[in-house]
């Protein structure tokens, strides 16, 4: 369904590029990294999702149970664009873009494709400014590699998440139903 969603007229940016290390509001040193190969960090990311409180799941993701988590990440791993947040040696946040195409192998120009965004931050690290930073670094990395159009859906009643997306420049582009669709055009 490429090219079917509405996007804001004005591009947004620039956003910071990873890697960066930054202190969160609790004084913890958080490192934002875009791994060259997601396979290298997939084990650490699986561990984060195993710790993730399922009450914060959204629209069925992340799945629960290590096998289902690994299977989900491996399914989207190859063509996805990822930024992970580390505290010491643990992944505590993960943001990703997945191409909206039936044939990811045939992507010639990342700017031609729409990318779906999702972001998760481990419960103990929420409300410390990490989500905003993680989102900004993902968008900075995306812009660096030529991605222009990013969209997402969020549960309509999830006001904190909607406020976060608006803060970095996403605009609401339609309310299908239970999900609010939002989009951003990158510089």
């Amino acid at each position: 369904m490429a090219g079917t969603r509405p996007y804001p007229d004005e591009p947004v940016g620039p956003f910071p590029s990873p890697p960066t290390t930054d202190e969160d509001r609790e004084g913890r040193a958080i490192e934002f990294v875009a791994p060259d190969d997601f396979e290298d960090v997939i084990g650490d990311v699986v561990e984060m999702y195993v710790q993730f409180d399922p009450t914060d799941r959204a629209q069925g993701i992340p799945p629960t149970g290590e096998d289902r988590i690994r299977n989900w990440l491996e399914t989207i791993a190859e063509e996805s664009v990822n930024v992970v947040a580390y505290h010491d040696d643990d992944v505590i946040g993960h943001a990703m873009l997945v191409p909206d195409t039936s044939d990811p192998a045939a992507i010639e120009d990342k700017g031609d494709i729409e990318w779906e965004l999702a972001i998760f931050v481990l419960q103990d690290y929420q409300r410390a400014g990490i989500g905003t930073k993680l989102l900004e670094h993902l968008l900075g990395h995306a812009s660096d590699i030529g991605i222009e159009r990013v969209w997402l859906t969020v549960e309509r009643w999830n006001n904190p998440a909607i406020a976060l997306y608006e803060r970095v420049g996403f605009e609401s582009t339609g309310t299908e139903s239970f999900e609010q669709e939002m989009a951003i055009l990158l510089e």
Binding site: Q59, I61, S177
Partner: peptide, 9 residues
Amino acid sequence: SPMGKIQLG
């Protein structure tokens, strides 16, 4: 969705 999110119309 491509991400695996359930979407209800």
